[in-house]
Design a protein around this nucleic acid. Structure first.
Lengths: 118, 118
DNA sequence: CAGAATCCCCTCAGATACTG
DNA sequence: CAGTATCTGAGGGGATTCTG
């Protein structure tokens, strides 16, 4: 019974700003992706926020992190774990739900909105 | 493509405090449920917050609201719509995901935690 | 009973600047 | 390149009081 508290916590952090977009950028990428590449793909995100999100996701086991400090500059890369991938599947179910029930949603005005790439 | 902004908004409000618990209390109840009954079932929630959550959910079409002002005191009741019910199904998928991947989650200490009834 | 009206607090996000 | 360190502002949540 009590394990379901986790559901609450899960939704709490995946709904933090930028978290989902970050997950989906990594899902699209397939390969390991660098910090700076994530930044440019996500557009407006500041390094502080991206760093916070990545730490949260790593701690939750949704992504993995590897650092190559033998090179200069250091190479820091991230990618989705299996559990992270499966969670994005569920988020896609939410998308299906929204497409079914939210008929009158308005398209966003931005030409290349990272939220809408989801 | 652009409709997916809705996913972001959806997760944003269903992860607001008390929203999920409210939805699941209504799912458990099946029949229409009164404002005060929701309050007592949810425990610590203040009327202001519950009122806010119910308005959000009604606006999103997840619940319906009916008022019987012929009686004294007024009878105000709520229940899940079909779309609301289907969204709770998806949240249960998140629960399944959590049970699969979050093995080491700690049970919460409260004896009758409304979050854990989910 | 079913909320509305105030007031307060605290966290989250962003801007900016800086470092190994 | 890959972050960290501060500072700031906005808003979401809570406590309390009041009303039709």
């Amino acid at each position: 019974m009590h394990e379901t508290c986790t559901v609450y916590q899960t939704l709490e952090y995946i709904s933090r700003k930028w978290t989902m977009m970050t997950l989906f950028e990594m899902r699209r990428n397939e390969d390991w992706i660098r910090f700076s590449d994530l930044r440019t793909r996500l557009g407006d995100i500041t390094p502080k926020i991206l760093s916070e999100r990545l730490k949260e996701l790593e701690q939750e086991g949704l992504i993995e992190h590897r650092v190559d400090s033998s090179t200069v500059p250091i190479k820091s890369e991230y990618h989705l774990t299996q559990s992270g991938y499966e969670l994005t599947d569920i988020i896609l179910d939410v998308k299906m739900w929204a497409l079914k029930w939210k008929i009158d949603n308005k398209p966003c005005e931005r030409l290349n909105c990272c939220k809408c790439r989801l």
